[in-house]
């Protein structure tokens, strides 16, 4: 944060369950939801605490970590790719399925495109080769097909089950 162009100005964000977290305007700008306040009145945005009742301290700091890492590593060249990949992997490794989903919620609420894209891809990768059962469980979706309907739809989508283990 030392390299922030406008040194003393930070945005104070208050998650629902923890202390205020200060972020640079550069980071805050990437959160569209926050950005709209900064645009409306940058004085108020820098002098008051913006409460985020839908975001936990954990989620907020994860999102900020991600943005910080990626905004710093963008400037540098090719050899960074490897470490970026490693960072992303570590980032996801710490997240259980529920946490991942909650973070997706938070990123959606704050409207941080970069994090949202990243997390959607992570979820997509996760469900890519999984069974219907897994996908239901992961998203907490209730099967609302009747037995006959499900059989029918499985039959018409038989091509989708080639090479997939049903559990």
């Amino acid at each position: 944060m030392a390299k922030t162009p406008e040194p003393k100005r930070t945005i104070s964000l208050k998650p629902c369950d923890g202390d205020v977290i200060e972020v640079s305007p550069m980071i805050a700008k990437q959160m569209q939801t926050i950005q709209s306040f900064i645009e409306d009145d940058s004085f108020i945005a820098t002098t008051t605490i913006i409460p985020l009742p839908n975001v936990t301290a954990f989620q907020l700091s994860k999102i900020i970590d991600y943005l910080n890492y990626h905004s710093n590593s963008k400037a540098v060249a090719d050899n960074v790719k490897e470490s970026t990949k490693k960072f992303d992997e570590e980032f996801l490794k710490e997240l259980e399925h529920d946490k991942l989903k909650e973070l997706l919620h938070a990123a959606n609420y704050l409207n941080v495109k970069e994090v949202l894209d990243f997390l959607c891809q992570a979820v997509a990768d996760l469900i890519q080769d999984k069974s219907v059962k897994f996908v239901r469980k992961f998203f907490g979706v209730v099967n609302d097909y009747s037995v006959e309907e499900e059989e029918d739809i499985r039959r018409t989508h038989a091509w989708a089950f080639e090479g997939v283990e049903e559990d």
């Binding site: 080769d129 069974s131 998203f139 979706v141 099967n143 499900e150 989708a160 089950f161």
Partner: peptide
């Protein structure tokens, strides 16, 4: 194929 399986998950 993955999307085809998602069709089986629920109506939504």
């Amino acid at each position: 194929k993955a999307l085809g399986r998602c069709c089986v998950v629920s109506r939504r």
